[in-house]
Design a protein around this nucleic acid. Structure first.
Length: 428
RNA sequence: UCCUCGGUAGCUCAACUGGCAGAGCGGGUGACUGUUAAUCAUCAGGUUGGGAGUUCAAGUCUCCCCCGAGGAGCCA
């Protein structure tokens, strides 16, 4: 039986397999905290109730030994999960060859990251991975409920989407290829084929960034919708975020508790999200004593400063065209601006969504491509979408790890992904 | 790439203006019938990241290198 199902079988005698997570002894009563991947549960070994052989085996049983416990499930308020297993018998299936390196005490981040494959077994990581899974599932459900089609973009690409300096280059037979920075360029043609589409996959950026918001490999959820303007995309992104939070609050209470997440801050996340323009954001920053000038992009400090004024995610729209990528639609009311938006998470987690209406005018797009110095032969296929039946369309990308970090209330995105890839760290 | 901080026992850290390298956890042994990072007793455990230099004496000071963290720029 799996630990997560124990509470439904109180009074029954069952066999549970798992690993020794922690143990305590009080002479003739011994306690083992068992984990099996679905949860943690206390096993009680009372001399006289458990078999003598089982009791003897439990003496100084090593951490992470894999054992099999036969026992009765009892309601017990003092135990984690509210139930415990009163052991009748205990068997050791596998003993560690060496002492398990990760203890219940504190460790440094270098050590933990080098032992990420083992670190995943700890309680915090267990909780984070389960919240990540819930968020992924919620996002898929959200799009399927709205009849979106999942179209995944290629990882190996001949071109760049977000600038050439941050590309990972790989050999592709006799050619050069790059790891994808975003699925968006491939999603726009898919939207012309299937209307409402989304992709969910990894993105790679060779940025030499060392901050709590950066990974070189991260996962993005990217929808692209035909006949939708940037306002529609703002609403879609807001609804998605609210949906993900509702699902985590509903299904992952135990995990939020393990992480000591301030749940009230999540419960405040409701529609609609506040919307301000880039220009208003500059004004707000200047009022707060920050010296960002019109025409400059926001850094981490600015994002935090802006989000502090709101208790829900903040939408900032219509940035200057000069600081944004070539594919964003020019604002017809002010050609200096583009019809884009970023969503800044509260509590200093930074930008979690970037989106825009896409440039649907063939000539304007061609002009942008030339201005950005992008090689024509790598993007001519992308121009075809405007050449053969252009259409109003919008989309956005949501950074999964930043979203998971925010909702989980953890400090750094590296804990929000099973095996983080950061600057200079490729192991394990 | 730049700035800042750090590297001492398996792990987390201490060691004053240079003067005998120490503690907790983990490990071994033992005690304890309700523990929650249990507690208590006891034992073992060290090429102080690497190299060079200054000095009677270097974990500590100087120089070079390696590794890590935090941040900036850029971004989700």
């Amino acid at each position: 039986m799996w630990i997560e199902d124990l509470k439904d079988h109180i009074g029954e005698v069952v066999t549970v397999k798992g690993w020794v997570f922690n143990r305590r002894s009080s002479g003739k009563v011994r306690f083992i905290i068992l984990r099996d991947g679905t949860g943690f549960s206390q096993v009680v070994l009372v001399k006289g109730i458990v078999s003598e052989e089982g009791f003897n085996l439990s003496h100084n049983i090593p951490y992470e030994a894999q054992i099999e416990v036969n026992g009765r499930i009892k309601e017990e308020s003092r135990a984690i999960g509210g139930v415990e297993i009163e052991a009748l018998d205990l068997k050791i299936v596998f003993l560690p060859h060496e002492e398990y390196p990760i203890s219940t005490k504190s460790h440094g981040i270098d050590f933990l990251l080098s032992h990420r494959h083992l670190w995943l077994r700890s309680r915090r990581q267990f909780a984070i991975m389960r919240i990540r899974n819930e968020i992924i599932k919620a996002a898929r459900d959200f799009f399927y409920e709205r009849k979106f089609i999942n179209i995944d973009s290629p990882i190996l690409t001949p071109t760049s989407c977000e600038g050439t300096t941050t590309l990972f280059e790989v050999n592709y037979f006799d050619e050069k290829a790059y790891l994808s920075q975003s699925g968006q360029l491939y999603l726009e043609p898919a939207a012309a084929a299937l209307g409402k589409v989304f992709c969910f996959g990894p993105a790679f950026r060779a940025e030499k960034s060392k901050t709590r918001r950066h990974l070189t490999e991260f996962w993005a959820i990217e929808p692209e919708v035909a006949f939708m303007d940037y306002k529609g995309a703002e609403e879609l992104a807001s609804s998605l975020i609210v949906y993900m939070i509702e699902r985590v609050l509903e299904n992952r209470q135990q995990e939020l508790e393990i992480l000591e997440r301030d749940v009230d801050a999540l419960k405040r996340i409701k529609l609609p999200f506040p919307v301000i323009s880039y220009e208003e954001a500059i004004g707000l920053l200047n009022k707060k004593g920050n010296g960002t000038k019109y025409g400059e992009d926001f850094g981490g400090d600015e994002e935090t400063l802006l989000s502090e004024s709101f208790d829900r995610p903040l939408i900032i729209e219509k940035y200057p065209k000069s600081i944004k990528p070539f594919y964003m639609k020019e604002d017809t009311e002010n050609p200096e601006l583009v019809l884009n938006f970023d969503i800044i998470a509260p509590e200093g987690y930074g930008e979690i969504v970037g989106g825009s209406q896409r440039e649907d005018d063939y000539d304007k797009l061609l002009e942008n491509i030339k201005e950005h110095g992008i090689e024509m032969d790598t993007v001519d296929w992308y121009l075809d979408i405007r050449k053969y039946g252009s259409f109003v369309h919008s989309g956005f990308g949501l950074g999964l790890e930043r979203t998971v970090a925010w909702i989980s209330g953890i400090h750094h995105v590296r804990e929000a992904i099973p095996y983080p890839r950061t600057l200079g760290r490729l192991y394990p």
